[in-house]
Structures are given as structure tokens and as C-alpha cells.
Design a protein around this nucleic acid. Sequence first.
DNA 1: TAAACATGAAACCCTTTGGTATCACGTGAG
DNA 2: CTCACGTGATACCAAAGGGTTTCATGTTTA
Lengths: 105, 105
Amino acid sequence: MNEPQPLFRALADPTRRDILLMLRTEDMTIAQVAENFDMTRAAVKKHLTVLSDGGLITVRAEGREKINTLNPSAFAPIKDWLSYFDAFWDDRLGDLKSAIEKDVQ
Amino acid sequence: MNEPQPLFRALADPTRRDILLMLRTEDMTIAQVAENFDMTRAAVKKHLTVLSDGGLITVRAEGREKINTLNPSAFAPIKDWLSYFDAFWDDRLGDLKSAIEKDVQ
DNA sequence: TAAACATGAAACCCTTTGGTATCACGTGAG
DNA sequence: CTCACGTGATACCAAAGGGTTTCATGTTTA
């Protein structure tokens, strides 16, 4: 449970990763985000939906505009997943240590 | 340069993420990996190719077998990319600090 | 109220992707 | 040498993805 799939999916596209980088410095409307890309507002809106599905952004209405805000805490599951491979490092270092010790004898 | 796209792409599929987790404990042939999934060996081979393109595994021939080995150092670019959002945290905390100080006056 | 504006949503198109089945090829064991 | 075995590669298929166009809806503003 707590499926990280929508999160990994959201990060798999370079346009979406660029959007996230943009949103670090300021919240933006859909139109503002779209200004920075050579594609239609509709296409950008689709990307924003995927980012929202992944929990990476939150959207709030402000009059007729929708303000998109970065939600950096959503990166946690990815960091957690990556940490599985930190343990791997420890194991390998352990193996190396054992091998060396065995070799010394 | 040093495009992380093949890396993000490789991690976007749950089957490929599971393969990586398997390879933490031991190197495996294609057939061995395929035993753990309900799909053909050809399909698994495709996933392994994507993982190799992303630099996440290395493959060596051993007789008529191909041994797939995890390459955990390949995760570095993802960690680097994620660190862009650690800086964001610092910025926001700075903003909060400024807001509080202003509020106190 | 009427018109401009920001967005939502659906239909459609082409490409990519995850999967299959099939056949060819190098390697190992009788 | 033969034949089974592990793999590589290709053609093929259905579904998903990224994009466009078009139209509908709610919100300002003149």
C-alpha cells in the first residue's frame, strides 16, 4: 500500500520535472507554467494533473485562476525507496570486509 | 549532458523496480529473474535492457548465460536531482523566518 | 449585461511501451 | 556430432502517453 507508482510515473517525464523545478521559487497559474513551454496550455494542464496525481503539487482556486504549488514532502516515498539500496551498500561493504579478513588468514 | 532521462524512465515501471530489489541480494541470469514474474523471458529481457540503458545494471557473459548485476552507484543522478528540492526547503524556512520576524515588530 | 479571460473536458492522432510468439544463434553436455 | 539450453532479435498487438483542436463553463471587467 501507499503505492509509489503515481510518483515515479510523474517524475518519468522531463517536462514534468522542469515544471517542478520552476515551482520551487514561486507558485504559478496554469497559464504561467505554459508560457515556459512550446506546447499548448491543454498539454501543460495534463502534465499538472499527473503531477497532482503523484502528490507532487497541490492546486487551489483563486478566482478564475488555479494556483499550482509545489509539495516537496511528496518526494519522501522516493527517498525511502532509494534507501533500500543504501542497505545494499552496507551489505556489500560487509562482504568485502569478510573477504578481506578471510584473505588475511 | 549526463541525461538522467533513461534513469527516470527505467524506474518508472514497477516490474523493473522489483527486479532491482531482487538483484540487491544476488546476481541473476535472465532466466532466474524471469522465474519470479508471470511473464515471458522475452518480456523480462526487455526490462533488463531498459535497466541497462539507465545504467542501473551491468551484464556480463558467463558461458551461454548472461549475469545481471546491480549497479547502485547509478542512483546518484536521481539523488542529485532530488537534492534540488532540499534547497527549496531551506528557502521556505528562510521565508518563514522572515515572516515571523516581520510579524514580531 | 456582454465580452474577454482562465480553465475543464472530450475527441482525436501518432508514437511509445509492455507484452506475446517465433525463429536464429552460440554454448554445453551426451 | 547432435541436441538441448540460454539467449538475441524480430514482427506483431493492444494499451498507454504526449500532444493537438474544439467547445463548454465559470469569472472578471468594461
